[in-house]
Design a protein around this nucleic acid. Structure first.
Length: 474
RNA sequence: GGCCCCUUCGUCUAGUGGUCCAGGACAUCAGGUUCUCAUCCUGAAGAUCGCGGGUUCGAACCCCGCAGGGGUCACCA
């Protein structure tokens, strides 16, 4: 029996989740889901200075909104609870003691200022700072008020990364890093290894920024007598300019903000997945289900990908068009214009069926549909900016509008098909080009720069409204 | 500066020695779908595969060097 796959997403509650974080979570989720394994959420809240109130809840909301449900986590519990590091301090202390007993950890006797001086020395010598160059010969017993450091055993390493391939480093990068801070909290470097072991995590999927710490982790796995999990290192997602990893400081948006801006979660998921991954075919968009069956870590690229909102917009439009009308109606609920508040659901659904192809995001809804719910304000610029219409005499406009009213008012059956017939007859009767006649009617009934097909628009507007709007003009 | 990683159209990418004078998608432009906008369809333009050496009958693909970019060198994760 092979060990069940268990992956985790382990953010620290220091703010919201942006696309970079979500992608790591998504890939970990996919790796677990595709083999029926477990996906775990673990909160790495060991730095109380950086902690932001409410961000744990925000993180959880983000995962849930995107459909990345986890099997074990701080709010759901599980066999290895608690899933919040600040509640696991005893566990780290136990593991730290093992290291001390084995002579692989010692108290750091230096003050922060002294360590800083060492660091500056190294910097001045244009060398990388290595604490172990200053390793104390007779460190004091650890009383919990000093940092506890790992006594490293520097050596060269080579290891396999499911994404990056075979990686190697020399002994010069292994150092005596801090295991437990003077405030009693463990560092990430220590805590994540302990927790991954305790929680039987099989795949460690994380961002590229950790790759340089790998030799230290490898050294610690050995000191602790632990088997290495499978490592998968994700390249960074770069900002739009392509010169930096995407980060909150450079305006990386909260994923939930995209949802608020009218993006569909499934579009976000597909877009984020294909930022650095594809299945080797020409398929461009994927449902979550397709991702679960097709995803594989070895098809993840090694170079950073830029975040291109234009492409996201297209992916979103694609998923919007795929939605059934009922589903679209559900998603649109909070995006209707004020004027639609009192409209009946069946009517709104009909509006949606006309608007669906034109929606890039749900946010476009008000601008595209307002005139179906409220009397539009006349916008003469629509006439004067139009090359053909601005040349028309007002008497000609009067004539055409009167003819349109006559033709439409006598219509017995008010539906798109009959309206189209009437419109075609009107074309013949008035001898006008559709470019002029139809445009005119469209503008007087909607006062919008664009709208769905004229006959569909009028059909939905209704006979009474159509005739009323055709009567009110200058 | 040391160490590590990366480098194919503007962007996301396919591509693992010959079928690649490099394929798809987004974006752009042009045309079509009896009015607008969008959808949809068709087409155009767009990459000396970072540069320089090698290996080979043959290289985007293998090797070496260089350059550029990114990451890291915290009592942050």
């Amino acid at each position: 029996m092979s060990t069940p796959v268990r992956t985790r997403f382990a953010p620290s509650p220091t703010g919201y989740l942006h696309v970079g974080g979500i992608r790591t979570a998504l890939f970990a989720w996919l790796v677990a889901r595709q083999v029926g394994g477990q996906f775990i959420l673990r909160l790495e809240d060991t730095d109380k200075n950086r902690e932001v109130a409410g961000s744990a809840e925000h993180l959880i909301a983000s995962l849930k909104t995107l459909g990345l449900e986890y099997d074990e986590g701080p709010d759901t519990g599980g066999p290895y609870a608690p899933y919040k590091q600040s509640d696991r301090l005893d566990i780290y202390r136990t593991w730290a003691q093992r290291l001390i007993d084995a002579g692989r950890a010692y108290a750091d006797p230096y003050s922060p200022a002294e360590v800083q001086a060492f660091r500056e020395q190294a910097q001045a010598a244009k060398k990388a700072f290595l604490y172990r160059d200053h390793r104390p010969v007779n460190p004091p017993a650890w009383d919990g008020t000093q940092p506890l450091r790992f006594k490293s055993d520097p050596k060269a390493y080579s290891w396999h990364d499911a994404v990056m391939g075979d990686l190697t480093t020399g002994p010069e990068v292994v150092d005596d890093f801090i295991l437990v801070k003077s405030d009693g909290y463990p560092t990430y470097n220590f805590a994540h290894i302990v927790d991954d072991a305790e929680m039987h995590i099989t795949h460690v999927i994380r961002g590229q920024e950790f790759i340089s710490s790998m030799p230290n982790y490898l050294n610690l796995y050995e000191a602790l007598g632990l088997d290495r999990p499978i490592f998968a290192t994700m390249p960074h997602i770069m900002n739009e300019a392509g010169n930096k990893k995407l980060g909150k400081r450079d305006g990386a948006k909260d994923v939930l903000e995209y949802v608020r801006d009218g993006y569909l979660p499934e579009a976000l998921v597909s877009f984020i997945a294909t930022l650095g991954w594809n299945d080797g075919t020409t398929q461009e968009v994927f449902t979550a289900q397709e991702l679960i069956t097709k995803f594989s870590l070895d098809k993840v690229g090694r170079s950073g990908a830029r975040f291109d909102e234009k492409r996201l917009l297209w992916v979103n439009g694609h998923f919007m068009r795929e939605l059934t009308l009922d589903e679209l109606a559900k998603r649109a609920e909070f995006f209707w214009p004020e004027s639609a508040k009192k409209a009946a659901d069946p009517y709104k659904k009909q509006v949606l069926s006309l608007a669906q192809d034109r929606l890039k995001t749900l946010r476009d809804l008000p601008g595209l549909t307002n005139y179906f719910f409220a009397e539009p304000a006349a916008n003469p610029a629509l006439l004067t900016d139009n090359k053909q219409l601005k040349k028309l005499e007002s008497s000609e406009i009067d004539r055409l509008m009167a003819a349109a009213r006559d033709a439409l008012s006598t219509l017995k059956q008010w539906d798109a098909e009959h309206i189209q017939t009437a419109l075609n007859e009107l074309l013949e009767k008035t001898g006008q080009k559709p470019g002029i006649l139809f445009s005119l009617i469209r503008i007087y009934t909607t006062w919008a720069p664009f709208s769905p097909q004229l006959n569909d628009t009028l059909a939905l507007l209704g006979k009474e409204t159509t005739l009323k709007r055709l009567s009110i003009y200058q």
